[in-house]
């Protein structure tokens, strides 16, 4: 490792630079609450269909049940993933990944780096893949997955997904044992720590997740998202329909954190979300196929939807940019 370990933001910048050089589009995080960067449309939707795609982005992820009111040095209800999506997965995907570690200042000849079997399955996304978690001296710092199925559809070609756990990685690089002690940035001797940015947020959000979240509201919101998603699917609008499933999924996670879901209910919620994502994936794939394999061009879809003028997050660039 280098003498001066990288700050959190340097880690992020280096990863972005490195993957940009590998031809990845640096799309930005999705502005919806989600449990993993896999939910980002640039991962989930873009791994459908046949078109090639390479992107990278940081994504804030929320896992309400993992919150510890900011008291645990290793557990957070909000943390960052750095996501790399390579479609089709290149033959040298593992060497590419190892070089990214070198770019972060990790000497791969001096550290014990291991690809440990870890297969992935997401019932809500109707997805599974095979791959590994990557261990850096025993610590899991990344997940590595070859998507085989997404939204219930076979992935052809296969997308390779690399997900760095940025906090873990930074802790390894900076050699700290407490996530709140991570140096986020350093400028003219002035240091900003992870604690300064997120400690209070962890405490308050944990209080919301575990104690305050209104379970009736959440259950209702889930139902509404489900209805809205179906309605949008009928209007041939897979992109906004998909966003409803992301919101629904987060509502479920919050309900779970409040222990408001029994075992059987739990299964039912998962199945309901899964039904939606499968329908979205099917419609999205059809509409992509109609537009000649270019996911950017939504063809006939969404004519009535643009009128609202709302500044909708662009999972794909807006139609105007496509040409």
């Amino acid at each position: 490792m280098q003498d001066q370990p990288p700050t959190f933001q340097q880690t992020l910048l280096r990863l972005q630079n490195y993957w940009a050089e590998q031809g990845c589009v640096l799309v930005q995080p999705c502005d919806l609450p989600m449990g993993a960067a896999t939910f980002h449309p640039a991962t989930f939707l873009r791994s459908l269909g046949s078109g090639p795609w390479r992107c990278a982005f940081a994504q804030g992820c929320r896992r309400p049940t993992d919150g510890r009111y900011g008291d645990n040095p290793n557990r957070l209800q909000h943390y960052y993933q750095f996501q790399v999506v390579l479609k089709p997965s290149p033959d040298d995907i593992q060497p590419l990944y190892l070089k990214s570690l070198e770019a972060l200042g990790i000497d791969t000849r001096q550290n014990d780096i291991r690809f440990a079997e870890d297969n992935w399955e997401s019932p809500t996304l109707g997805a599974w893949g095979l791959g590994w978690e990557v261990w850096l001296n025993g610590m899991e710092v990344s997940q590595f997955t070859y998507f085989q199925q997404v939204g219930g559809l076979e992935c052809k070609p296969v997308t390779g997904e690399i997900t760095y756990g940025l906090e873990r990685l930074a802790m390894g690089l900076q050699g700290v044992d407490d996530v709140f002690g991570l140096v986020w940035s350093q400028h003219n001797g002035e240091r900003v720590l992870y604690r300064d940015l997120f400690r209070r947020n962890e405490a308050e959000q944990s209080a919301y997740n575990f104690d305050e979240a209104d379970t009736d509201v959440l259950a209702r919101r889930f139902d509404e998202c489900e209805r809205e998603c179906r309605r949008l699917l009928e209007k041939n609008l897979p992109l906004p329909a998909y966003e409803q499933t992301i919101i629904a999924s987060h509502c479920f996670n919050l309900l779970d954190a409040r222990h408001a879901v029994s075992v059987t209910e739990r299964q039912r919620y998962i199945l309901r979300t899964r039904k939606l994502t499968l329908a979205v994936a099917r419609l999205y794939t059809e509409s992509v196929a109609e537009s000649g394999g270019k996911p950017a061009d939504k063809s006939g879809a969404g004519k009535p939807a643009d009128k609202s003028g709302a500044d909708k997050p662009a999972a794909a660039p807006p139609p105007a940019a496509a040409r």
């Binding site: 490792m1 001096q110 550290n111 001296n137 050699g175």
Partner: peptide, 16 residues
């Protein structure tokens, strides 16, 4: 899975 020139780094990682 490596004969490292700096095994103490690796050891510290394991312990961490």
């Amino acid at each position: 899975n490596i004969e490292s020139a700096a095994p103490e780094n690796i050891r510290r990682g394991y312990e961490r």
